[in-house]
Design a protein around this nucleic acid. Structure first.
Lengths: 157, 157
DNA sequence: TTAAAAATGAAAACCATTTTCATTAATCAT
DNA sequence: ATGATTAATGAAAATGGTTTTCATTTTTAA
């Protein structure tokens, strides 16, 4: 197995074990899908993608794993307003870029953007600090989303 | 009826009619609750508050009205992660202040903050403009939330 | 004052997510 | 190794917020 190609028995084994979790086949399959996919997968999306190769992994396990991953901070859970949660791999060693979302309120299309991210993040950090102090919150996360009509839905009106 | 005290047959009558909706008793009751309440009511919260005075108004109507109000931009719908949607009156003539949210991921407590709002909103406006152009989106709204542990939940750990 | 359109409540349906529970697989102590 | 614990799992059932359906009532338009 070529070095550098750390797929399969990846870096996350340690993260799991460290927290008392076991890295099973099913979980690994889910992680694999998530790490490769370009964001925004629902639990069922993941289930569908895994099923051909791992018919043994049930939807329940997908949900359960997603919960664990979420609590470990390895995936982020989003709500884009279409009634199902979406999951996105937190940046791993491959270094997916930090981004925010632009959501079409009509067709639910989601665009990841990185423009302005730096300014946003900088302001966010300041705000986080200030808010944390004022309200005695231990802030761990933030969410920014813009809503509107995408090019297509705009035209259709 | 004293001028200025426009409760009861308020300003929103026009808004409704203008869009082909009818301002019924139930809807008015819902609007009334929403406009007075300090944000973050769930559909059931609203139902409960209305029920004593208007036992005839069902939960279904609450949901339906909330949908209408939402589409009219009169209320904002939020998801704070506890499985039920929360609704907040958009600023009306009373001029509720624009604010963002600070959400405790443990107890789901929500704090409205207005600190830093100006800077945030300014940046947001810029970003909105830039994104709108680049992605041909007609941006109508944004969402900013911070997540973390509130003072209490922090202590309990 | 009648006809068409909207709004409504109650009950049923929906449907993403959770829970239950009996079984299996992984880890640990010996 | 080898049981003994503990975690993970799948299937099926339960949950619970939200939506639909449908028959009825209310409101508006003609």
């Amino acid at each position: 197995m070529p070095r550098g190609e750390c797929r399969g028995q990846g870096w996350w084994h340690g993260k799991f074990r460290g927290c008392g979790y076991r890295l099973t086949l099913g979980r690994e399959a889910i992680l694999d899908i998530l790490s490769k996919a370009e964001g925004h997968l629902s639990a069922e999306d993941i289930y569908m993608k895994i099923h051909p190769k791992h018919p043994g992994v049930g939807l329940t396990t997908v949900y359960r794993t997603l919960d664990v991953l979420s609590s470990l901070g390895m995936v982020y859970k989003f709500d884009f307003g279409d009634g199902r949660s979406r999951y996105e791999f937190a940046e791993g060693p491959k270094g997916a870029h930090h981004h925010h979302h632009l959501v079409c309120t009509q067709c639910n299309k989601v665009i990841d953007y990185t423009d302005f991210i730096d300014e946003e993040v900088e302001l966010l950090n300041q705000t986080e600090k200030g808010l944390g102090q004022k309200y005695k919150f231990k802030i761990t996360n933030h969410l920014i989303q813009f809503y509107g009509l995408c090019e297509k839905c705009r035209g259709e009106k």
